[in-house]
Nucleic acid binder design. Structure first.
Length: 582
DNA sequence: TGCAGGTTATA
DNA sequence: ATAACCTGC
């Protein structure tokens, strides 16, 4: 049992009815209790989100006047370096698994195993479930289920090497560092390894653990692994971090050309010494934790997800090979087409770390005759999608305030958003009357996954056509996607809502009709997800009520469009324009 | 990885 | 009449 924590103080004891905790999730449908305080930052009172970090504070991060979480970690490592050097081997080495649930090509796991092997002590795997963490970060039940299924495979794979995987639940995320130290002490482990996660909470927790370990005579090594190129490694000629994809991508390619070792995959660990099974007998019987009540799935949904996304790194590697072999060279041409399987659907595996981005890049490079940036446009385009994943993580590390409900661009602070509950619900349920939007939202509900093209379409629709706050959409995606990853999801929503990085000389508003006609010309995707429109002709399916299919649509209960795109477009242009003038 | 409104090319 | 192409936002 985890130690009992003090309950949150009742509302009466909190000043000004402030929310229970800083980490608590604001109610989307009520004005936030602190909304008044936001006046001083020029934020409208009606907003439903907690006060945003002030633009001044954001600027201070950008200018390097405030310590970014990555620097907090670096400082902790620096200041404890000497102390850690004097720590001895101990009787075991621990690798703390987080979102790196694989054996193949994990920097920290590889280093941990090498150290264990050299010193002839066993390696132990550790995974800690924190339901509070999942709730605070809006991790979806689908992703929780996928993680737990992946853990099961991981345990089997490690077991074959006589490496145990200890798994346990800690209700409170704050209890995790102390618990890890406790476990290391219990096992006599003096050396702990982990790969870095780049979100703000995670980096600060890592820094705390580095110090806590050093104080407890444990050497904790925290390793860069999840990106192909380490965040912070790429800077412009003026020494600034990039916030625009294209120049960043050029720099990413150049970096990998100059530093080919970044594309070297690390080997899987080998077997533990023969006596490991006796020494840590109990650890081998560990059960995979169960999902908290808030994150359990219906049997039907669970079975479906299991069929769609079988867990484990073997599945991931096989998917990677199959995709590159069969579809990689047609990727540029077909990736946006919505019917049929033209994309790799590897995102769930990247999100929980069953597949390393580096392995994906190396394999694609090999398939593309050894090139990242020339030869076959199909592979090149797919590699640049891997680069997008790196890019958004780099952005997160450099501008950490985006973790705090903040737009990247300060001038977007003043955009006046709508908070219409019914329209938001129609969007969630796929009942907006825009077939392409509805098909996509139903795909999300059914598969916990959505095609990237339609992610752009529905995010643009929510934020431009409905003018609803992009943060509501961002959160809904996290709550429902099996591949929900903070940096990629936030980045995508910044793109779709035009509040993120990637400034354009024009203002981008997707036209749902045009997108539908271009990327689902036969209406196959729509027909699959919107059964009400199955009898409608190819021509009319993108806009049934305007193209002579009103009778069929009505008969089958398909809703009329809840907004007029042209009018909404004008409103969005107006709102963004006036926010810039303030 | 945009759209809209125009012009030009072709039948 | 239609599609392909161009250009400003």
């Amino acid at each position: 049992m985890p130690p009992k924590r003090k309950a949150t103080a009742p509302a009466a004891e909190r000043p000004n009815g402030s929310p229970p905790s800083k980490k608590g999730r604001p109610d989307l449908h009520q004005p936030h209790p602190n909304a008044k305080q936001t006046e001083e930052f020029g934020i409208v009172l009606r907003q439903f989100y907690p006060p945003e970090m002030s633009n001044e504070r954001c600027q201070a991060y950008t200018d390097g006047k405030l310590e970014r979480p990555i620097e907090t970690l670096q400082k902790a490592c620096r200041e404890t370096a000497e102390k850690r050097r004097s720590i001895n081997v101990g009787s075991a080495v621990v690798h703390w698994f987080k979102s790196d649930l694989r054996l193949h090509d994990s920097r920290a796991l590889h280093t941990a195993y090498q150290f264990a092997k050299e010193n002839q002590v066993p390696l132990i795997g550790l995974y800690i479930v924190s339901p509070e963490d999942w709730a605070a970060h809006s991790i979806s039940p689908a992703r929780v289920d996928f993680t737990l299924r992946t853990l099961k495979r991981l345990q089997q794979d490690l077991g074959e090497l006589d490496i145990p995987l200890h798994m346990e639940t800690q209700e409170k995320r704050k209890a995790i560092p102390k618990r890890i130290v406790e476990l290391c002490q219990l096992w006599g482990a003096k050396n702990l390894y982990a790969n870095i996660e780049y979100e703000v909470d995670e980096l600060r927790r890592e820094a705390k653990l580095v110090r806590l370990c050093a104080d407890s005579d444990i050497n904790f090594t925290s390793t860069h692994d999840t990106c192909v190129v380490t965040p912070g490694a790429l800077a412009s000629q003026q020494g600034k971090q990039y916030s625009v994809y294209t120049p960043w991508y050029r720099s990413w390619l150049a970096f990998l050309k100059e530093n080919p070792d970044y594309l070297e995959v690390s080997e899987e660990p080998g077997s533990n010494p023969g006596n490991a099974r006796q020494q840590f007998k109990d650890l081998f019987d560990c059960k995979v934790p169960t999902a908290p009540k808030t994150h359990t799935l219906s049997d039907e949904y669970q079975k479906r997800l299991e069929g769609l996304y079988p867990a484990g790194e073997h599945e991931a590697l096989q998917r990677l090979d199959n995709f590159l072999e069969e579809k990689g060279n047609k990727y540029e041409e077909l990736r946006s087409m919505l019917s049929g399987e033209n994309t790799s659907v590897l995102s769930p595996y990247f999100a929980c770390g069953a597949l390393s981005a580096r392995t994906a890049a190396v394999t694609a490079k090999r398939t593309n005759k050894g090139h990242l940036d020339r030869y076959d446009p199909g592979y090149m385009t797919w590699i640049s999608e891997l680069a997008w994943r790196d890019f958004y993580k780099h952005v997160l590390v450099n501008w950490p305030f985006i973790c705090m409900n903040k737009c990247f661009k300060p001038e977007n602070t003043n955009i006046e958003w709508e908070y219409d509950k019914d329209q938001f619900q129609a969007w969630c349920e796929g009942k907006t009357g825009f077939p392409i939007v509805d098909a996509a939202m139903r795909q999300l509900r059914h598969c916990a996954w959505m095609h990237n093209r339609t992610r752009m379409v529905v995010s643009s629709f929510l934020t431009k056509d409905l003018m609803l706050d992009w943060r509501r959409g961002e959160r809904y995606f996290m709550e429902n996607l099996i591949d929900g990853d903070f940096a990629s999801n936030h980045g995508g929503w910044g793109f779709g809502s035009s509040t993120g990085v990637d400034p354009q000389p024009y203002f981008r508003i997707f036209n749902p009709l045009r997108q539908s006609e271009r990327f689902d010309p036969e209406g196959e995707y729509i027909r699959h997800w919107v059964p009400e429109l199955r009898e409608v002709s190819d021509k009319a399916i993108h806009e049934p009520y305007a193209k002579g299919a009103a009778v069929i649509a009505q008969k089958n209960g398909y809703p009329k469009p809840i907004v007029d795109h042209a009018e909404s477009r004008d409103r969005a242009l107006e709102r963004f324009k006036s926010a810039l003038q303030k």
